[in-house]
Amino acid sequence: MSGRSVRLPRFDNRHDRSVRKATGKEIDVNIRRWSAGVLAAALFVPGLAACKSEADSPAAGSSAAAEKPADPKEALAASTKELQKGNFTFAIKGGELNGSGTVHLPSKSAEMKMETGQAAEDLSMSMHLVFIDNDSWVKLELGGPMADSVPAFKAMKGKYQHLDRSKLDGVKELNFDFADVDPAGAEKMINAITDVKQTGEGAYAGTIDATKATDSDLLDADTVKALGAGASAVPFTAKVDAQGRLTEFAVEVPAADSGKAQTLTVTYADYGSAAAVKAPPAGEVVEASDQLYEIFKG
């Protein structure tokens, strides 16, 4: 496995070249991440509310809400501690891409699902990644007129492709590190906070220095570079529940170069009560094709 969690897959210029190689045609695929932050640059849109679940109510066995630090930055820093236990669900949204998933460290399993584009467009994508201990699978379906014209893409539909770990070197999008379980890197974002204030019960707002958070999956190096001087003061909002656990972190990325302004949002829920992820049905599994690795390696 790679030395960090799965990167929220993105289709940037590198992936454009891979898809063009596979199709022999020009395809404009600019799903710039959930780096959404792939799950960011094109991945998020404003207004994803914190998921309603046990994350919004006292934890099992707890008789009262946990005491949160009075200092806003300290409170947000403390809010990520529960994430490290690796038992939660999450959702990511922004731009054209929507994603969601589960991390369940007790069973050493995780999954994430993401979709981008519309079927009526030249190319749309849906992907389901499943990780169980040392095994992993991906179900990748490309739709639209362009994908339908390529037999290799049509053959992927409806099948989970079992991944060969020996072929995954350098393919961060298809790896998961169970020692670094936060799929969006919220702690890295919080460590980059330059100004913050509490705006309400469990609600915070401020700015981050994005140049210090390029290792997170909500803001990658390409996005930060495009922001120029504005990268040093990117607005954010955050929410925590009654136990002080992070339920939402949103970064308001301003327009830069040819990119539109967008809000990249990750939400967390089901702390301590997420379900173990199951392997795909055996009848729906095939060994991954060379075509799949080519798409991600570029």
Rank of each mutant, 00 (worst) to 15 (best):
S126T: 01
A155I: 05
S166I: 10
E67G: 07
L227G: 02
H162N: 12
R20H: 08
R32P: 04
A65I: 04
K139G: 10
L292N: 02
F153T: 01
K52C: 13
I190K: 06
P106W: 10
A221K: 12
L246Y: 14
I190N: 05
S273A: 02
I132L: 04
A50G: 13
I27K: 14
V171P: 13
G298C: 02
G99T: 11
D28L: 03
S107C: 09
A229I: 04
D148R: 03
F44E: 14
T237V: 07
V285G: 10
A256P: 06
S124N: 02
M112T: 11
D241M: 14
G101Q: 03
G117F: 05
C51D: 10
K197I: 00
Q198K: 07
A192I: 07
F11L: 02
G244Y: 09
P254A: 03
G200R: 03
P145Q: 00
T265A: 01
S109T: 04
T89N: 07
E252H: 01
L105C: 15
A256I: 04
E82S: 08
F249D: 10
R14F: 02
L43K: 09
A282Y: 15
E248S: 11
A233T: 04
V285P: 11
K297W: 06
K113G: 08
G272C: 01
A203L: 12
D217V: 08
C51Q: 13
G158V: 13
A221Q: 05
M125P: 06
A22H: 00
G86T: 08
T223A: 07
K188I: 00
L168S: 15
F178Q: 08
V240R: 15
A75H: 00
M127A: 07
G206E: 11
R32C: 08
F178H: 02
G95V: 08
Y160P: 02
P254Q: 00
A221H: 09
D215G: 14
L83A: 08
I92Y: 06
L39D: 15
E294M: 06
T23H: 05
A282M: 11
A192S: 03
C51M: 09
E187H: 03
V234F: 09
A66P: 10
N87M: 14
P280S: 15
V130H: 02
K167M: 11
R165N: 15
P281A: 11
V103R: 07
Q118N: 09
A238Y: 01
A42N: 09
K139F: 01
P46T: 07
K159P: 11
V150A: 05
M127D: 01
L48I: 07
D177N: 14
